[in-house]
């Protein structure tokens, strides 16, 4: 399945958002996630199926003003 992760197009074997985070080596507890512009809470990641073409954002704390 092809998806977009943080702006990069890629092919994933993961069926869910939780699976994608594991596949891509993210620490699930130190990131926040959104799909197609909607926030996906940590508690729903395992139940959130990935669809072909979705845009996933995985964000971390960064410096800000």
């Amino acid at each position: 399945m092809r998806i977009e992760l943080n702006g990069e197009s890629l092919t994933t074997e993961a069926a869910t958002l939780a699976g994608l985070l594991v596949e891509r080596g993210f620490d699930p507890n130190s990131v926040a996630t959104a799909i197609d512009g909607d926030f996906v809470p940590r508690s729903l990641r395992a139940d959130t199926a990935l669809q072909d073409g979705v845009k996933v954002e995985v964000l971390s704390p960064m410096q800000g003003g």
Binding site: F26, P61, Q63
Partner: peptide, 19 residues
């Protein structure tokens, strides 16, 4: 202190420690 959310960069873990 103010912070933001961004796509993960190399320095992410160190920044969390500083906070």
């Amino acid at each position: 202190v103010t912070v933001s959310l961004r796509r993960e960069g190399a320095e992410g873990a160190g920044f969390r420690d500083i906070l």
